[in-house]
Write a protein that binds this DNA or RNA. Structure first.
Ligand SMILES: [Mn+2]
Ligand SMILES: [Mn+2]
Ligand SMILES: [Mn+2]
Ligand SMILES: [Mn+2]
Lengths: 143, 143
DNA sequence: AAGGCAGTATAGCACAGGCTATATTCCGCG
DNA sequence: CGCGGAATATAGCCTGTGCTATACTGCCTT
């Protein structure tokens, strides 16, 4: 018997995984942005988050609520939003991954502006293994 | 004045674009799969679509309904699902892009299985420009 | 100290995309 | 022929992510 047991995921698993990544994509972008705002302005206000994300203010408020539920952020009503340790760690990982994805795209010939645009979506589907491959490729390139 | 007018999209635009791509991702995967099923089995039944997508049958039925509304598919109740001309054209573009994304990932050192997994999500965020760059890169590589 | 405005939260709506449970239809077989 | 099981559709639920309209707070300014 060829034994494909527990080896190659099938098509359905692949789709399920993509759906899962999509579900966390928004949270990743939010924590990254909140981290940016805190670094830039010292605080992350809901209005600024909404503006930078391109959504209405109540939408940002609601998503921040989800971040709180997931243990990624805290917020005092009518005050700013803060990242938990887990949130800050995620933000840093996401930011680094974003940069690597952009760099990889540019390295294979994608124009900078396009790389920035496409990376915003692509990044969330780049696994640890793929990220490692990207980094290795970039290192070789530069050598 | 540096004049950034109508040139670089800002952060909010970038996020909006990623959200838009995400909204059509599911439709793309469905039409590609329906095309595959028709090619393989001569017809695309809702049960097979559901099974291959890894969702429950009513979920597939509902999404097929959306494909119909968007002019990508037709379906006769209790019979199979068919692609419109637009749907078939989209399926072909999506299938080709999928293959190119997998090939690019492998070309930069991503293991095949990982490439297949990640490509399922990445593909939907690869713009025409990025796709063209990928193709050019692959062509050079092989030369 | 108080008022007003800006910022935030809440209410309530729509739609996508999951699900289970159930109704309906089709079709092959006895 | 007609019946029963398989396939499909429908009903009804939940959550997420958007929106607008409106209520509430906090704080700056007079
Ligand atoms: Mn992103
Ligand atoms: Mn990003
Ligand atoms: Mn896909
Ligand atoms: Mn695909």
């Amino acid at each position: 018997m060829p034994d494909r047991t527990a080896s190659a995921p099938n098509e359905a698993d692949r789709f399920a995984r993509a759906r899962e990544k999509q579900a966390v994509a928004l949270l990743e972008d939010y924590v990254e942005l909140i981290g940016d705002l805190i670094a830039e302005a010292g605080e992350a206000r809901v209005a600024d988050i909404a503006h930078r994300m391109g959504v209405a203010q109540p939408t940002a408020t609601k998503t921040v609520g989800r971040l709180k539920r997931e243990g990624l952020a805290t917020a005092r009503p009518y005050r700013g939003v803060f990242l938990t340790e887990a949130g800050a760690a995620l933000a840093n990982r996401v930011r680094a991954r974003h940069r690597t994805v952009v760099a990889l795209l540019k390295a294979v010939g994608v124009p900078e502006a396009t790389a920035e645009l496409d990376a915003e979506g692509i990044e969330h589907h780049v696994s640890e293994k793929t990220l490692a491959a990207f980094e290795a490729f970039l290192k070789d390139r530069q050598a």
